[in-house]
Design a protein around this nucleic acid. Structure first.
Lengths: 165, 165
DNA sequence: CGCTCCTTTCAGAAATTTGTGAAGTTAAGG
DNA sequence: CCTTAACTTCACAAATTTCTGAAAGGAGCG
């Protein structure tokens, strides 16, 4: 069955999950190294790993870790911490923070909306194409609102089911 | 101001929008040709274009059109129609259908969920990592439901604001 | 039936992306 | 200060992706 908690974990099982889940993320558009690094963090016991641990576990160079982590931090999927009294850096996946990041497709949506607004203006709001773009724009604006509300509901749901993390 | 409807449209304005919007789609992970083709359809007056029109407008080969369209049809962002009494094919962006497609990240979400479930099992539901994966899984399941409900609300909202398309 | 117009497939050239090794940078600790 | 541990940056080689031209396929029309 499953390992009793507190026991060393089966590195092979971990690796299998990491690679499998990372593959799904890649398919969804994430770059490979960020995907693998993120999956490794998700599957770690503390949700925290150092550069060295990541490099060793994933068999990648420090340079690759650096690049992946920079990207992940930029899109808020992990946070970086300086381990006090050491030059080591640690990377953490906060339970919630990364859901927020997922919905931080907001930033992307905003740019879509801008492009659409520009299109409505330059093609003419009174043209068929303009009207189509306007409706598309309305959809995204609707989604914006709804996603915000949805995340509220999630937080409530989560607290009820898992307690305050 | 804008062109009166019924007048030939400014091809340059159209192109500017198409390339700009396509660039956003690319940034969000779509391949370039599908993105450009889709944007061109969105910006067309009837929401329908033939292969030849697409090729000419976007300055790409028939092969490129073929590939892009195949992809877009597969993910339900456009539908293909045979123009009756002709070998020409026409590609259409249905107002609603493509929102559905967007949420058809469902297919993707399902696979994420599968990978996570597998992870919970193989790492052990009683381990810290297992619990983290479980919570992530719960989030996606929650999102599934919510998105379905959201689309319902959108349809109502849309009907009210734009009338039945 | 065969011709013709359109679309699709395929192999390959070109461009882009990816990951590495090695040099460079910063800061802790003696 | 000097050493050393760690992370970052950079240039390049390798792998992958992308798009094209050319040939093949198939449906309408005579």
């Amino acid at each position: 069955m499953a390992e009793p908690s507190g026991t060393a974990r089966d590195p092979e099982a971990v690796s299998r999950f990491v690679e499998h889940f990372a593959a799904q993320l890649v398919e969804a558009g994430l770059q490979r190294m960020p995907a693998r690094v993120f999956a490794a963090l998700l599957a770690s016991d503390k949700g925290v790993l150092t550069s060295a641990e990541l490099g060793e576990q994933l068999k990648i160079s420090p340079a690759a870790v650096s690049g992946a982590v920079r990207y992940l931090a930029q899109v808020r999927m992990v946070s970086r911490e300086r381990e006090p009294g050491s030059r080591r850096e640690r990377y953490r996946v906060h339970g919630d923070q990364w859901y927020e990041a997922l919905t931080n497709r907001e930033a992307i949506l905003k740019r879509w909306e801008d492009a659409l607004r520009e299109g409505v203006t330059s093609l003419g709001a009174d043209t068929p194409a303009g009207r189509r773009l306007e409706e598309t724009l309305a959809f995204f604006e609707f989604v914006d609102q709804e996603v915000a509300a949805m995340m509220e509901r999630w937080r409530a749901h989560r607290e009820q089911r898992f307690g305050r993390g």
